[in-house]
Write a protein that binds this DNA or RNA. Structure first.
Lengths: 229, 229
DNA sequence: AAAAAGAGTGACAATTTTGTAATTTATTAG
DNA sequence: CTAATAAATTACAAAATTGTCACTCTTTTT
């Protein structure tokens, strides 16, 4: 029975979350503000994940996140009110594990929670990752579509690897560029990634103009698959 | 205390092996021929590795190997009498885990044994492999030389990955070509790999003309590092 | 010591990759 | 419905990759 900490001042949302999570057989700890959250985290060592509202009465969620990171590596999922907040979360790129925009469907939430937890558990991960008929084998650095070897360039492989290692996680274009390109590379055009995604889609999607594998998340970036499973 | 099966008809070698392995705190089971070997393997379930002479009185070592594979996945290291036999082992490419040419140094043998065992134990392996100042990270598909990102092409990366995933294992050029290139690729020139190795060495070796990382094994092929640690 | 075999090297042309810019299409906001 | 914004697409040159060949150097064999 895994214990999850909710940090959320709005009582309605907090109650709702609590209810859903218990149904999904998580144990729930609640806190209404940053101070309380830190207390609980230090107290209850078994907390495996933290749902963190970006807007808190006593403190900015980002600041709280940084403070948490000073003493704990617990996975954190941000709860954002809208796309603007979401963009900030992505833009600041503080290393949150995921985020979810309110209002959200119960199923989406639990699926994201399970994803994050799975990522943490499998850090010493499998070499073979599958999604939507695509198999990626990190031990061969090969990608297969229905068993057939797909030829990818070095960069295409790095990009698709990035998504396959973090399924359902949304990446901004900037984030992917930063992950893949050399650190002190001269600035690489934002559209460049769009073009790479197109090229990858042409190689792996059944219908590249209606992608099922690398999906577009408008205004933000791309993700492997769909949030709602 | 790990149990190793020796299959060898020459008594002197068998005794020698037994002696060395016991010193290295392995438990040893001996057999003088194929029939006996199969019996012991079926009997003693704790055998973790098998040293298999290519020349046996009652049966060809290759045939025995195939028979063993019908009921067991135990790692097998071939003992070959000379380079010719070694070439055959490599050429047949039966999936042996390693081989060692007689006469061999005790240290070389134990180091190969430990290598094979390590490979088996870490099949759900680490994403970061290091050797001689080179770090290969399969999660990023990146290679670093003293922390600095080395730019490799898709093929170069696949080739170096092949060696880093199987340290100290000797690969013929044909084997590497077969591993890396698409299955039903038109024939790729043997020398092509030599050229690729050169290119890789130029990127990763301190002194490319005196390689310390990808070493040449004359008449056979290449290997990561040195057999004698 | 000469011949033979294996490995390394440099250079080359064909093909790909890479990054960008310009344009078109789709989606959202007013 | 129109304008504004974001994403997709197309096309294109510069740069890099890829595979091979001819040649040299090294090691082994005779």
């Amino acid at each position: 029975m895994k214990k999850i900490l909710i940090v959320e001042d709005d009582e309605a949302i907090r109650m709702g979350l609590n209810y859903y999570l218990k149904q999904e057989s998580f144990e729930v700890v609640e806190s209404q503000n940053a101070k309380e959250a830190i207390e609980k985290l230090k107290e209850e060592k078994e907390i495996v994940l933290c749902l963190l509202d970006v807007n808190l009465p006593d403190k900015n969620g980002f600041t709280l996140f940084k403070e948490i990171r000073e003493f704990s590596k617990v996975p954190v999922i941000f709860l954002t009110a809208d796309d603007v907040e979401t963009s900030i979360v992505m833009g600041l790129d503080m290393g949150a594990d995921d985020y979810i925009t309110k209002p959200f469907k119960a199923r989406e939430l639990t699926s994201r929670i399970r994803n994050v937890l799975r990522r943490y558990e499998n850090s010493s991960n499998n070499s073979i990752i599958e999604y939507g008929g695509i198999t990626l084998d990190t031990r061969q650095a090969k990608v297969f579509k229905n068993g057939k070897d797909v030829m990818l360039t070095a960069l295409e492989y790095k990009i698709i690897l990035n998504f396959f290692l973090n399924p359902k996680m949304v990446f901004t274009r900037e984030k992917v560029l930063a992950n893949i390109w050399d650190v002190n590379e001269e600035y690489v055009n934002d559209n460049t990634l769009t073009v790479y995604i197109k090229r990858i889609r042409e190689k792996i999607e059944d219908d590249p103009s209606n992608p099922k594998i690398i999906k577009t998340v408008r205004r933000i970036g791309y993700q492997l698959g769909d949030s709602n499973d």
